[in-house]
Write a protein that binds this DNA or RNA. Sequence first.
DNA 1: CCATGTGAATGCGTTCACAGCC
DNA 2: GGCTGTGAACGCATTCACATGG
Lengths: 213, 213
Amino acid sequence: MEQIPEPAKERLLFLMRILEKNREKPLTSGNLEALTGWSSHTIRKDISFLGGDYGGGPGGGAKKAGTSCGYNPETLMPAIKAALGLNRRRRFCVVGLGRLGSAYLNFQSFELGEFELAAGFDSNVNRVEILKSPVPLYPAYKIPEAVNRFAIEIALLCVPGEAAQASAEKLAAAGIRGIVNFAPVVLSLPPEVAVRNVYVMDELRALAVKISH
Amino acid sequence: MEQIPEPAKERLLFLMRILEKNREKPLTSGNLEALTGWSSHTIRKDISFLGGDYGGGPGGGAKKAGTSCGYNPETLMPAIKAALGLNRRRRFCVVGLGRLGSAYLNFQSFELGEFELAAGFDSNVNRVEILKSPVPLYPAYKIPEAVNRFAIEIALLCVPGEAAQASAEKLAAAGIRGIVNFAPVVLSLPPEVAVRNVYVMDELRALAVKISH
DNA sequence: CCATGTGAATGCGTTCACAGCC
DNA sequence: GGCTGTGAACGCATTCACATGG
């Protein structure tokens, strides 16, 4: 069940994004190849990892009758979620309410019910009081209490680089399970805290690598 | 020469980040294992891909004398850059000056001389006139002219999702070579334009996958 | 014909193990 | 002893090829 290759998981996350924008209309593996750049072989294999159940297609191996051609988003989407363990709704917060943090405070497309923005934090008490926000804001020293009370599992870490490690440790101590790190530093955290880094600098470099053949 | 595996390239980019923060002091592959979570085997192999030249370590295969133990950042850093084709300085711009875009307009850590922020664009002329910025700002219709005049190669695309595809096409037509896409949509562009997507939603999901075992 | 689905084969990236040098 | 460097072995992900069904 859980022997889905790691790269395949990443691709499935990307497919979810396409399926969201494209409900109703069935998508064939050929369509998806055009949209993603991955071969139709890869896509069919990835989908087959989530247990023969497939989306709702036409023929396939030896299954119940489908309606037409291609994958049915309405069927495939929940199948991916289930296989990846994305059933439960999870709460997250934004830490550091500078330009970047306040941008994500007001970010759309979080309104899908899958994740719930529960709070924002900043060490600058002024900011906390002044900023307009759709969710409650707290000074940073209330992180342990609030993370616990609201059962917040994930944090978007948007503080400046100098403060990132300290903030991350505070979050880890408060029992956070995962951090999306936007600060341009490498965090050292206990292994039970999952980290995903978003390094704009690295994205620029990766592009430079690509475009220099 | 250029048969460095794609995953290895990504790891080397990450190593650059560590080396930048840690000039002078040599780093052993063991140190790097602790910092990155990757095995020392993997790290040594990755570095060996950039042509036997190594950083400046102690022994090694059969090379010139080094100074002490571990990799010398001052030597290793340029070696990685050279192998990855990051020699040339490149100019980039920010498109879409909402909260997110203006955050990146004023982002630090771009000051390393490797990339140069050359301009910002927004379809809202008001914004262009009002915003304070370290670089010149232009209305969106000037993208073709400015991209050409300043020889801008890369764009950070920070416009809302609805506008992203149109803006990306405009950039592509203007001759941009690479786009970092922050909008939560999948872009369809000619293959000569490289794209890297930064989907915060996907990062949240990836973390949710990890923390649900 | 078109499509999906999946075992089997290929190929590639990681891991091992050892050689060389401090 | 420590470390790096690298060919060779391994294992896993991708690709192929074909079976199945509309």
